[in-house]
């Protein structure tokens, strides 16, 4: 290599090193954020009896107290339209161990019924004109009545019921939500001669008057298989929400609360407004485990 060539290389090197304004070649590329991770349609995890696609946030715990007053509205003001009781009630405790999955343990005093279920939101679509989501709720329940009353042991096979529902929810408008809930229940009536199956189809709708107050209706009908005296359960009501905690009050023709009991229909046909029952549900969210 000639001396002048070496000199050129040295000069170029020095200029490069000393140059204060090199063109920056930053490799980092801006990501396209996809928007909210969770598609929120109905605000609560249940409407009245039918599930929504909403699941608790990871590590959240939810406690629910629900009542269905047994006396109907026809009892009049002297019984506060049934609110004097007695009532079927449900206590529910649910928890979300991981994202999009929650598990719940519930007990209703109707037939001393316990049930355990899982709900998994397996699909959601937040983009487009109509956000939508789908979930699977599946579980098992047992009517663990006192053997002295039922005449059989608490946990024998015929006392167990199994159910699954697939809520599909849509956000039709910013304030209007709707959903369909096909379901199946095995061993619908625990005292039947042989296990029966019920195929059901439910529908839900809620209009949010404000972001924290809504009016809603739901209907669930046994479309095939075993059905109780009345095949179609329905409810209409009002809810208010404060920071994720709900208070719901409604009128319904069904006093059944646990899904394994509710899905097979209602106790008697509804022929008049006075046949309806008052009910309410209170939910309370709790943070569990590590704060963040």
């Amino acid at each position: 290599m000639k001396i002048w060539q070496l000199a050129v290389i040295c000069i170029i090197s020095v200029l490069v090193v000393l140059s204060p304004a090199q063109e920056r070649k930053i490799r980092w590329k801006k990501k396209i954020f996809k928007g909210p991770q969770a598609v929120e349609i109905f605000h609560s995890t249940i409407l009245v009896n039918l599930p929504t696609t909403e699941v608790l946030q990871k590590k959240n715990l939810e406690f629910i107290v629900a009542h269905r007053f047994i006396p109907s509205l026809g009892e009049g003001i002297d019984a506060l339209f049934g609110a004097d009781g007695p009532a079927y009630m449900q206590l529910s405790l649910s928890y979300a161990p991981v994202t999009n999955l929650m598990v719940a343990l519930e007990r209703s005093n109707r037939e001393n019924h316990y049930q355990l279920w899982l709900k998994y939101k397996f699909w959601e679509k937040g983009s487009g004109e109509i956000p939508m989501a789908a979930a699977l709720k599946a579980g098992a329940g047992v009517a663990a009545e006192d053997p002295a009353l039922s005449g059989r042991s608490r946990f024998q096979a015929r006392n167990w019921q199994y159910f699954a529902m697939v809520p599909v929810n849509l956000k039709l408008m910013p304030n209007l939500m709707a959903g369909v809930v096909p379901g199946i229940l095995y061993n619908s009536y625990i005292y039947s001669a042989s296990p029966q199956t019920s195929i059901t189809l439910g529908a839900t709708v809620e209009y949010f008057v404000t972001s924290s107050m809504g009016i809603y209706a739901e209907v669930n009908s046994v479309v095939r298989g075993y059905r109780s005296e009345g095949a179609t359960a329905f409810a209409v009501g009002f809810e208010t929400e404060t920071g994720g905690h709900f208070f719901k009050i409604f009128l319904t023709n069904s006093t059944r609360i646990n899904s394994a009991q509710y899905l097979s229909g209602v106790d008697r046909r509804t022929e008049a407004f006075s046949d309806l029952h008052l009910g309410f549900t209170i939910t309370r969210l709790l943070r569990f485990g590590e704060k963040w």
């Binding site: 969770a38 929120e40 605000h43 946030q57 972001s211 924290s212 920071g243 994720g244 943070r287």
Partner: peptide
């Protein structure tokens, strides 16, 4: 930690 608060 609370869905409604997130939305708000």
């Amino acid at each position: 930690g609370i869905g409604l608060r997130n939305r708000h």
